[in-house]
Design a protein around this nucleic acid. Sequence first.
DNA 1: TCCTAATCTGACACCGGTGTCATAATGTCA
DNA 2: TGACATTATGACACCGGTGTCAGATTAGGA
Lengths: 339, 339
Amino acid sequence: MKGKATSFDIAHYAGVSQSTVSRALRNSPLVNEETRRRVHEVAKQLNYKVDKNASNLRTQQSSTLALLLFEDPTSDESQINPFFLAMLGSITRACAKEGYDLLVSFQSSSSDWQADYEDSHRADGLILLGYGDYLDYQPKFKTLIDQHTKFVCWGASVDNRPDLTVSCDNYGGGKLAAEHLLATGRTDCAFIGDASDHSPEFFARYQGFKDAFLAKGVALNERKMANAISTEESGYHATRSLIANNIRFNSLFAASDLIAIGAIRALKEAKIKVPDDVHVVGFDNIAVASFVNPPLTTVQQDTTLAGQMLVDNLLKLIRGENVENTLLPPRLIIRGSSV
Amino acid sequence: MKGKATSFDIAHYAGVSQSTVSRALRNSPLVNEETRRRVHEVAKQLNYKVDKNASNLRTQQSSTLALLLFEDPTSDESQINPFFLAMLGSITRACAKEGYDLLVSFQSSSSDWQADYEDSHRADGLILLGYGDYLDYQPKFKTLIDQHTKFVCWGASVDNRPDLTVSCDNYGGGKLAAEHLLATGRTDCAFIGDASDHSPEFFARYQGFKDAFLAKGVALNERKMANAISTEESGYHATRSLIANNIRFNSLFAASDLIAIGAIRALKEAKIKVPDDVHVVGFDNIAVASFVNPPLTTVQQDTTLAGQMLVDNLLKLIRGENVENTLLPPRLIIRGSSV
DNA sequence: TCCTAATCTGACACCGGTGTCATAATGTCA
DNA sequence: TGACATTATGACACCGGTGTCAGATTAGGA
């Protein structure tokens, strides 16, 4: 037998028609028990596997989802944000559980998306992942929706955002961080991140944080803020600039763990002790967080649940079921950087 | 227009036959320049994308590779070894560069592989990734080869191993680690990892390490070794057991960074100072390594190059070109854990 | 025994492209 | 002007399955 076996080969050896083979292998109730057994037997012997291309072509669906990972083009290309890698892991698992294959693709948010996975019938739907600039994405989302592409996004669910999202309750997470710092008596707080609406996740975290402080009658000092994207480098430089400008604070909330880790490096360098002089709280609970020195207090996003919800919601969307935006509860993980 | 546009729709609007559309879109030199332009125009207007299933079915190839990631079943399911996540990133990029899609799938090395991606024509070839038990894999490799499946493995290239591998020069890496410790005068060394041939990468690292010591006339004490798989937990427990047994050493080589990080935790807990009392060297240079306290000296594996080589070699294999096993040079990264 | 229903199977069109072959249209040269 | 090469296009089989429809066989009931 040259090349791979086809259903015709099975039909030949099992002494039935090709139609029957197809039915038998999919366990159709239409075929006789004995016939089915024989067909399965022969198929196994010939190591026959259904040709997915032929099958997909006929049924017009691929049992495949595509994951588009958007990276911040300014960040170092060789390092991927560990938070998204964790998400990738959980999404992969969730797909496998549902019997779907997963295509993975990295996009740079500046360039045009290669989002034709669905148009070309390679995938039944898309999962979009990335801390991204909401304003940039907006027009593209509209295109996707116009084309009736099925997709879900990870990220902030901003009002009037036209797409379906799954996200962490970033606002609530910011509140958790604030309440923890207030409980430890550190009310003079700096914020490192991006409080503009270009980065909706970070913005929501900041809002929740600020509101929790306000609720206790404490107003955040706008001067004690510095912009940073979600990299260690960026967090380091932002914090350094605060220190260089002689801005004092006894606690620090970073919009992500990577930023927090960079901030701690900058603080150490300036001989400012963590947690004695400054309490630090991050966001994400990436794997590194528990290994840094001191171990980082942070707001955990449940990546396992997030991946499962993204996949579940996308599959519902594909099946035409009704789906709502999903908000996942954050959880505060207290470690040495804030005791 | 209901549903997605097909090449027949394009043909209709462009006033040519469907064959011509197909040729024009693939820029065949057979079609007239003017015709080609018109076809492209219409295709763009209708947002037409070639149906990959139909195309793949006809051409009998998928322009897709599949990545099978084997995880140690004993490790925590929610955490994926960051080294492999880095590899995943570089493989994804390499695939994109070569115009291939990437299917990602996690396997547990105990259960039967779902390695039918190639049989079912979903992928043209497989990339196998994981620290794995060589003996377990052996029979499965034979099956893959018998079926003429195209695949490459990341891992140790053991003699008479039948598959094509890309790997780091683990032996050379072990030597680098040893020479560094010898240069700092720390000759009383412990090894945490697995020196059996069940874990060929770890074994090679240990061999290189041992040989470098022997070359200087120093023999390693077999009692100062403890088995561990590549997790922080495992490294922690292995090191703790050495300490509990009152085994003394002034330096420690861990078969991976995760193990090293666990080892440092155990040492700290026992009030043993790193690097003052014990120098520690790891392997992999995962992202965490530079953030732990003290920053970890380690042997770097070039994941970017590794991913590129895996993809390159696999594509050569698919094209029927001649390919050799590839050995990548390791590099010593000296940090605070061994100064 | 005849009629109808239930069960099982095969023939065949179809999914949407790609590649081969035949043919029409145009150009070249003697 | 006729023979022939060149260029551009269309018709059609084909990839390997799935789903529909018709027909064969057997069972059951009157």
